[in-house]
């Protein structure tokens, strides 16, 4: 596969993170290449959120190495990571519902135009780019100044993804983008992920839903109790195996039996 021809853009080695006496992560290794979708799977409390917050600059790791484009890197803030080209789309904090799509899209990076000594937001350009980028993602907005609150959950995720990609994200971290969505909207978000990957962006897709992961993932890493349990390539692992790894094996098998194999 072509995406394995080059080196990882970001490589996390043996990341550990302690919060006082609590060991949230104890040795997680993970890497992303441009143009691939690497799924990070894990049950609730496995350490997925802590791990991606380390990757996006919210937390500094207690130990371990972060290599970005082959060089050791330390992010002190989300802003640092963002400048470097690592964008994170949070499940519930992606968008501000009361604000328009355009205002959300450009939030923090509004395009300016000079009028004498004053600088105003260039809304003509902002609206045009927003409409165009949304069209590329398969969403036809009625108007760029419609409130984000009028969009569906999947569309909001898509706006956030489109925004990250437009502003030059090379690595896109998606924190459970599908967990609150219906079937149709999930499909839309998954196809957005596919589209973004084809544009050469490295996608980190965090989920606890094996089917969603298998639908778009190129590689799968399972994390449990703060440790990586291993990474598998697409086609090398079955949904059942992934599910078992996530839930910690034996207990899950017993549980599944008692539920008649429906989980």
């Amino acid at each position: 596969m072509s995406s394995y021809d080059h080196e990882p853009i970001i490589e996390m080695r043996n990341i550990a993170k302690h919060f006082g006496p609590v060991i949230a992560l104890s040795g997680v290794s993970f890497d992303v290449r441009l143009g691939e979708c690497h799924c990070l799977l894990g049950d609730n409390g496995a350490g997925k959120s802590t791990f991606i917050k380390t990757m996006s600059g919210v937390h500094t790791p207690s130990s371990g190495e972060i290599l970005f484009k082959g060089k050791p890197m330390k992010f002190d803030s989300p802003r640092d990571a963002m400048e470097a080209g690592i964008a994170t789309v949070y499940q519930d904090l992606a968008m501000i519902p009361l604000m328009s799509v355009t205002r959300n899209f450009w939030m923090g990076r509004e395009p300016l135009r000079r009028v004498g000594p004053l600088r105003f937001v260039d809304f003509a350009k902002a609206n045009e780019v927003t409409m165009e980028e949304m069209r590329k993602m398969g969403i036809n907005l009625r108007e760029p100044d419609q409130a984000v609150g009028t969009l569906s959950g999947g569309e909001r995720q898509t706006v956030a993804i489109a925004r990250a990609v437009y502003f030059g994200a090379e690595v896109l971290i998606l924190d459970e983008p599908t967990s609150a969505l219906g079937v149709r909207q999930t499909a839309n978000v998954l196809s957005t992920i596919d589209r973004v990957r084809k544009r050469g962006v490295g996608v980190v897709f965090i989920t606890h839903n094996v089917r969603h992961a298998l639908a778009v993932g190129d590689r799968f890493t399972v994390i449990n109790r703060g440790k990586t349990l291993g990474t598998a390539l697409r086609g090398q692992i079955s949904p059942e195996e992934l599910q078992d790894m996530m839930a910690g094996g034996q207990e899950m098998v017993e549980l599944e039996e008692s539920l008649g194999g429906t989980v």
Binding site: M82, I96, M107, G108
Partner: peptide
């Protein structure tokens, strides 16, 4: 005012 945390995440 809309969502302080979401705003911080994009650098406001």
């Amino acid at each position: 005012g809309g969502d302080a945390q979401a705003a911080r995440y994009v650098g406001v």
